[in-house]
Design a protein around this nucleic acid. Structure first.
Lengths: 349, 349
DNA sequence: GCTATATACTGAAACGTTACAGATTGTCAC
DNA sequence: GTGACAATCTGTAACGTTTCAGTATATAGC
C-alpha cells in the first residue's frame, strides 16, 4: 500500500461526514471526476455519472458549504434586511415564511440582518457586500431614491426590494398596489355616503407613501369627496400618538366621517381615538384598513378591511432574487399585487 | 524580485478585499505572524501586535468566514428553528430582534431554519447537525420529553430551548413562569368574585401546558374556585374554532364567569365567542390573557393582561447559546422570567 | 566560549471544493 | 501502422484560514 492509498483509506474510514475524497475512494475515481459527475458535467461517462450519484445519495453526501464558498465565492445565502423598530410585526413573520417556502428546496440559507433606528440603513448593506456574506439581498422600507438599491446596483449584487423605487433604475421588486388600495377605499367610503375622509398614511420617506396619497387624491376628486388632513402622524408613530391625534381630530367640528389606514396596528389606535372622542364606529365614522392577518374583524366588526399577503410578498421577493442570481434580467422580475375588494364583516354560520 | 515577492505584490495590488496575505505583505511579516497577532497570541511581540492590528483596522480587514469555517469548523452561525404554522406571530418577530441584539457585536450571523407541520420537528435539527451548519441552535415549542434536545445533547451541539424539558437532562433554557401566570390569573379573577374559571391552555404536547395547568389547578383550590373544563381547544387552534367553542360553552347553563388565555390572538377569539353568546365582557365574565404586545387593551378595555416579553426571551436564549459555545456549564445558563402583575386598563391622561 | 532556553517569527500543510491543464484510452481515416 | 481526434478520466493548484513543526536571534548560565 503506497502513501497515496493509505491516505485515502484513512479518510474513508474516518467518522466525519463524507467528502468528495470519501466518494472518490469508494468509487475508485479521482476527486475531480466525482466533483464533475455530481454536477452533470458533459465530459463524464453516463454510467460513471449514475454510479457516483447513486453512491453519493446512499451515503448522504452533502457538499461542504465552506469549501464551495471559499473556492467559488458562492455563499448560498440570502439575506433579509430588517429594521428592528419599524417593521410591521406580521410582516417579519410572514415574509420570513414566504422566503423560506421558496428556498426550501434549494441550497440557500436565509440570514436575517437587522439594523436599528440609530444606524444608517446603508450600514448593513455595506457590511453584506463588503464581506461578501450573501449572494442576494432582500430589503424593505423602500424609498423613491433609495441609496441601498443604488449601492447594490453599483456593486452588482442581486437584490429585490419590497416596494418600488423611482430613480429610473431597473431592479426586481414586489409591491402591493397601494394606489389601488387607497382609491378603492375612498370609493367604498363614498359608497357609504362618507364625504370627509382622513388618511393615515405610511411615513413620507417611503415610496408607497406617494402611491397611497395619489390613489387617495385621485379617487377623492373622482367621487367628489374631500380630504380632512391627518398628516401629523403616520403608521410609524406609536399607538399612543396616533390615538391621541385621532381623538383630537375627532373632537374638532370639521372632523372626518371616514378613515383610511395603511396598517392594522394603527387602525386599533384610530378606533381607540374615535371612541375616546365619544363617537361610534359605523355610525359616526367608517374606517377602511389594510391588514395582513384576519384579526381586525374580531376587533370591531364594523371595520372594513383589505388584505395584504406578506407571505406571498416574501415568496415573490425570494423568487426574484433567485431569478436574478440565476441570470434572469432584473426587469423581468418585478411584480405588483392587486388588492382584493374592501371587505365588511360577515357573521360566521 | 523573486517569485515569492512577486506573488505578494500581485496580491497586495489586487482590488479584492484584504486577506491575511495582504496584511502580511503590508507589514513585511509572515502570514502566520499576522494571524496570531490579530488574535493576541502570547508569542507575538507587543509592538508587532499593535502594528498589525493598526494596519488591519486601517484597511478594514475582516476575516473571511469561509476560510475560518473550512479550517476550524467554526461557522459563526446561530440557527433559530421555527415552526411555520404554529408560532405566535409576535414571537417570531420579537425573538429575532432579541437574538439579533445580543449577537450584534459578535461575528455571529443568525439563520432562520423553518419547518412545517408535515415535517418531523427533528428533521431541521438533523440537517443542521449533519451538515454542521451552525455552532448553536435555538428551538421553541419545547416538549417535556423533547427528541430534539436529546439529539443535540447526544451530538454535543450547543443549543437553548424556549421552554423547559423534563427528561432529567441539563441544558440551557429560557422560560416564562407560566405556573405563576396561571396562578396569578386565578387569584386575580377570584379577587373579582369569579368562581367558575375556564382555561384556554397551550397545546398538550408542550411543556408549558403542564406548567399552566398546574398553576391553574393549585390556585383554584387555594382560592376555592372551580374549573369549567375547556380542553377541546388550545391556543394552537384556529381563531374560528376557538370562537365557536367559546360561544358553545358560554351558552351552557354551567358557563364560566372567568377565562384565562395563554395567547393574545386566542383571546380575541374568546371575546368574540363570548359576545356571540350575547354576553358582556366585564359584566358576565372576566378574561385574563397573556400578551406580548400592548394591543389587547385597545381591543377591549375590560380585558386583564399579563405581559410576556419575547424580545427578552430572544436575548436570553442567544446569551445562553453563546455562553455554552464559550464553554460555560449548561446548567448555569437557565433562566425563568417572572410575570408582572395582572393589569387592568388605565385610561390614558 | 559553549550550551541551554526563551522570544519572536516563519513556511508548509490541511480543511473541501472547483478550474486548469494535462493524461490515457479507443476509434477512425488513410 | 500512423496520426488525429474525441471521450473520459486525473493531479495539481488555489481560495483564506489556523496549526504544526520548526528556524533564527538574543539572553542567560556556568
Amino acid at each position: 500500500m503506497n502513501r497515496h492509498q493509505k491516505e485515502k483509506a484513512d479518510e474513508a474510514s474516518g467518522p466525519g461526514r463524507p467528502t468528495l475524497k470519501t466518494l472518490a475512494f469508494m468509487t475508485g475515481l479521482g476527486v475531480t471526476t466525482v466533483s464533475r459527475a455530481l454536477k452533470d458535467a458533459p465530459e463524464i461517462g453516463a454510467e460513471t455519472r449514475r454510479r457516483v450519484q447513486l453512491v453519493a445519495k446512499q451515503i448522504g453526501y452533502r457538499p461542504n458549504r465552506a469549501g464551495v464558498r471559499l473556492r467559488t465565492g458562492k455563499t448560498n445565502v440570502i439575506s433579509l434586511v430588517l429594521n428592528t423598530e419599524h417593521e410591521i410585526m406580521s410582516f417579519v413573520s410572514d415574509i420570513i415564511y414566504g422566503v423560506s417556502e421558496v428556498i426550501a428546496d434549494t441550497p440557500y440559507h436565509l440570514i436575517v440582518t437587522p439594523y436599528s433606528r440609530s444606524q444608517d440603513p446603508l450600514d448593513p448593506i455595506r457590511y453584506l457586500v463588503e464581506t461578501g456574506s450573501a449572494d442576494g439581498v432582500i430589503i424593505s422600507r423602500t424609498q423613491p431614491n433609495d441609496p441601498r438599491a443604488r449601492y447594490m446596483l453599483e456593486r452588482g449584487i442581486p437584490f429585490a426590494t419590497h416596494g418600488r423605487t423611482d430613480m429610473g433604475l431597473i431592479h426586481p421588486y414586489h409591491d402591493f398596489d397601494n394606489y389601488a388600495f387607497a382609491a378603492e377605499a375612498v370609493r367604498h367610503l363614498a359608497g357609504l355616503g362618507r364625504r370627509r375622509l382622513a388618511l393615515l398614511a405610511p411615513p413620507v420617506e417611503l415610496t408607497y407613501h406617494g402611491h397611497t396619497l395619489a390613489g387617495f387624491a385621485d379617487a377623492l376628486s373622482e367621487v367628489g369627496a374631500s380630504e380632512i388632513p391627518f398628516n401629523t402622524v403616520s403608521i410609524d408613530h406609536s399607538i399612543e400618538q396616533i390615538r391621541m391625534r385621532t381623538a383630537q381630530l375627532m373632537r374638532r367640528e370639521s372632523r372626518p366621517d371616514g378613515f383610511i389606514s395603511s396598517a392594522a396596528a394603527a387602525t386599533l389606535a384610530i378606533v381607540a381615538g374615535i371612541e375616546d372622542a365619544g363617537l361610534k364606529l359605523g355610525r359616526d365614522v367608517d374606517v377602511v384598513s389594510k391588514q395582513s392577518s384576519e384579526l381586525l374583524h374580531l376587533f370591531r366588526s364594523e371595520l372594513l378591511v383589505v388584505n395584504e399577503n406578506f407571505r406571498l410578498a416574501g415568496a415573490e421577493l425570494a423568487r426574484s432574487v433567485l431569478g436574478w442570481i440565476g441570470g434572469a434580467a432584473p426587469g423581468t422580475l418585478q411584480s405588483l399585487s392587486e388588492p382584493g375588494e374592501v371587505q365588511a364583516y360577515r357573521r360566521p354560520a
